[in-house]
Simulated assay, not measured.
Amino acid sequence: MVTTKSGNCENMKLAVILVNYNGKKYNTACIESILANVGMEELKIVVVDNASQDASMRLLEEQYAKDGRLEFIRLDDNYGFSRANNEGISRAKAWGADAVVLLNNDTEIASDMLSRLWECAGRHPGCMIAPKIYCGDDRKRIWSAGGSVSPIIKKVRHIGLDEADEGQYDRETEIRFATGCCLWIPMSVIDEAGTLDERFFLYYEDTEYSFRLCKLGIPIYYCPKAVMYHKVGASTKGADSPLCAYYIARNWLLCNRLHLGGRYPLFLAYYALNRTVCCLLWFVQGKKELVRATLRGVGDYRKGRFGRAERY
């Protein structure tokens, strides 16, 4: 498997995995941007549907019925982001893919993003890679230029979030956290580290996977020449929703319990203060449903209830 001087990726099989849940509004733009990518000779797009109710899968199957580059997997229920991606990874492995790209369907990618990621993979073999991600509604404003992790309680943040791009994040560099909005993962990494943890259902599965790779000594790189655009919050109704409040409250606890070791009690003190402040603000603002969702998330964590929550 080599990359030619012209940027073509010869003898390399790449599978892009899209998880769909009522994504009719976004799917076509995302898929067309993938198909427009240059230099990818063997490309497969695997669309995994979490039992959508908006006819989005029927429309895609009709629209791309004659395009052999697309495959569709219909799940019989909404099993969440992790399970759906894992189903796609399994299909990609059966096809013989050398690498997968996990990509949110509420995105559009630049016409050379996949080849740029592949070039970066050639410089850093056996690594997970993240692109530069701009906000979909302002294509000069950064949403993520990789991610960092605080040293004690392992709190993650997006580097460059909401900053205007003035070239300050144009250096290819190793990072500690990569958002699940777009991840390049070689099959060799999946063989060693495994797939996404399905207990998370939604949120923090990317954080946990990043932490897992770091524990195994598998580097993560940020590739600024690979560019894409994200319609932030389109698939989950935004950060200010009960769904988001619930899964963040529950999954943040689970993720850090798995990876903090002896520092976990210190994290719990920070977590209690952080969530208490959020709940007080929401209560004052009249957003009591967010308070209830947070308390349910904490309660379900303590009871060991993971995966999909019935209320959300």
Rank of each mutant, 00 (worst) to 15 (best):
C181T: 15
N20I: 08
E174G: 07
L243S: 10
V46M: 09
L18C: 05
Q285R: 15
V227M: 13
L290I: 10
F200V: 06
Y264W: 07
P151K: 10
K237V: 05
I152C: 10
A309V: 03
S82Q: 06
N37A: 14
G136C: 04
T207Q: 14
N105S: 14
T179P: 00
K215G: 12
Q168K: 13
F200H: 08
N50C: 10
A130V: 14
E32L: 11
L43Q: 04
N85L: 09
K287N: 11
G147K: 03
L103M: 11
G262F: 11
G126W: 02
D106Q: 04
K66F: 12
W143G: 01
R139H: 11
Y26S: 10
W143I: 09
E10D: 14
C255W: 01
D162Y: 15
G167W: 02
Q168G: 07
P242R: 05
L202K: 11
K24P: 00
V291D: 02
G307T: 07
G160L: 03
L183F: 04
G238R: 05
L268I: 10
I220Y: 02
I17P: 02
V284S: 12
C214I: 12
S115C: 10
N251A: 08
G7P: 03
L161Y: 15
D76F: 07
K44W: 06
H124A: 07
F283A: 15
N37G: 12
G261Q: 03
G297E: 05
S148E: 15
P186K: 09
W95L: 04
E163N: 08
W184F: 14
A272M: 11
R199Q: 10
Y312D: 09
T4F: 12
E32H: 09
S90F: 06
A97N: 04
G262E: 15
L161W: 15
L281P: 00
C120L: 10
R139W: 05
L295H: 01
W95D: 06
V16F: 06
G194W: 04
S90H: 11
K44G: 00
D76E: 14
P186F: 09
G297S: 04
C135R: 14
Y21I: 09
P151G: 06
K5A: 14
R58G: 15
A121P: 00
K237M: 12
M57T: 11
N251Q: 07
L18Y: 00
W184G: 03
R139G: 04
T4S: 13
Y247A: 07
N256T: 12
D106L: 02
L103Y: 06
L161G: 01
A92R: 06
R171M: 14
K25Y: 01
Y221E: 08
G297A: 04
G80D: 02
G194Q: 05
P151N: 08
